[in-house]
Simulated assay, not measured.
Amino acid sequence: MIRWTSDFEEFQRSEDLRAGRASFESFATYLVRLGWAALVPEKRLSITALGIAVLGAMNDEAALDIQMVVAKAIDPDDPFAYAKIIGEIAGTDDAMVVDPYLKSDGLQDLLRLASVSRVLTSDESRPGRSKPSPKIAVFEHMVEASVASGFELRILPLAQMHDRYVIPKSGSVLNLTTSFNSIGQRIGVAVWLPELPSAAIRDAHAALWAAGTAVARQSPPGPESDPGATTL
C-alpha cells in the first residue's frame, strides 16, 4: 500500500512546495488518521475494521445511490436523430424547453407535445440591433393559433442565455449541446443530468423564467372557448 501511494505523495509534495508549504501529510498518514488503516511492524499498513466497512460501502451502489450521467450522441448521419430527441422530450412531464436560437419549425414541433408547457428563448438581440428578431412576432402568432392548452412562451436578451435544456417539473434535466435547428446537421450530445446539477439548473432557470418577457400564452380551455357550446 505504501508503494501504491508513492505517486500520490510525490504529487502532493510538489503541490505543497509550489504553494510554499514546508511539510505535507502523506496519504498513508492520512489513512491512519482517519482510522481506515493502522501502522504495523516493519512499517507496513494494515486495513482496519473501519476501513473494511468503508470499502464495502464504496462497492455497494445501492447504498451510495449512485446516479450516472446518461449521454446519447446526436449523429448527423442518423436520419432519425431529430425524431429521437423529440421522443426523449415527449417522455418528460410539464417541461420547460430552453433554447436561445429556437426557430419556428422547432417551436411548431414543441407545440405538438403535451409534455411541454413552457418555452424560453431569446430575442437574439445583439449590439447595434435596435429591434428584436422578427421571429418573436412569428412565435406569438404560432402560439396564439395553436391548440396547445396552457402553453406559454417567454423571451430574454441573448446575453442572458447560452445552453439548451429540457427541464421537467422534477427529476433529471436533459442538456442538449446543439440547438433544435441544428439537430441532424452537426454532431452533438443529449445528456440526462444527475439529480444535483438538475436541481441547480431548475432553480437557475426558474429565476430566468420569472425575469423573461411573456410573448404569448394559451389559456386553458373553458366554456367560452368550447366550439360545441351554445350561447343563449
Rank of each mutant, 00 (worst) to 15 (best):
P194F: 11
V143A: 04
M68R: 13
A216T: 04
I136H: 03
T231W: 14
I52L: 12
E88C: 04
L31W: 08
Q160G: 02
A159Y: 01
D75N: 15
L107N: 01
H162I: 00
A214V: 15
L208K: 15
L45H: 12
Q12S: 10
Q108M: 11
R164M: 01
L102C: 01
D105N: 12
D77M: 13
Y82R: 15
D99T: 00
H205N: 15
T5L: 15
P41F: 07
D78S: 12
N175F: 12
E195G: 09
A57S: 12
R3K: 11
Q185F: 03
E61Y: 11
P134H: 10
G212S: 10
A211E: 13
S117Y: 01
G35Q: 07
I136F: 02
A63Y: 08
R3N: 08
K169Y: 06
V116P: 08
K43V: 07
I52N: 10
S225P: 03
I47Q: 10
S198R: 00
V40F: 06
D77H: 15
Q67N: 09
G91K: 10
P227E: 10
E144H: 08
M1C: 00
A210Q: 14
Q67A: 07
I183D: 00
S26V: 11
A37I: 06
Y30E: 14
T121E: 01
W4T: 12
R21K: 13
S146P: 04
A57L: 13
G20S: 07
S26Q: 12
I47R: 09
N59C: 13
R18N: 05
V40P: 04
S149G: 03
F139M: 03
S225N: 12
D203Y: 01
S115I: 03
A81G: 05
I183C: 02
R202I: 05
A63C: 05
S182R: 08
Q67H: 09
S146Q: 08
G56R: 12
A204W: 00
R33G: 13
F11G: 02
A81E: 04
V70P: 02
K135C: 02
S198I: 02
S182Y: 09
G51H: 03
P221E: 12
A71H: 11
L111M: 10
D77I: 07
R18H: 09
A145T: 06
L193Y: 03
E9A: 10
L102D: 00
D109R: 15
A204Q: 03
G20Q: 05
M142S: 02
Q185C: 05
E42I: 05
W192T: 02
G212M: 07
L17T: 06
D94E: 15
V173S: 08
W192K: 08
F139P: 00
P157F: 12
I183W: 00
I187G: 00
R18S: 09
D163R: 10
V173M: 09
S46V: 11
D109G: 06
I86K: 08
G20F: 07
N181Q: 09
G35L: 06
E25Q: 14
G87Q: 05
I74E: 04
F180E: 00
F11L: 10
W36L: 14
S149I: 01
H141D: 15
V97E: 02
A22Q: 13
D7P: 05
Y82M: 14
M142N: 00
D65V: 11
E25F: 06
Q67L: 05
A199P: 00
S26K: 14
K84H: 13
W36K: 04
S182V: 08
P76S: 11
H205V: 04
R44P: 02
S225R: 13
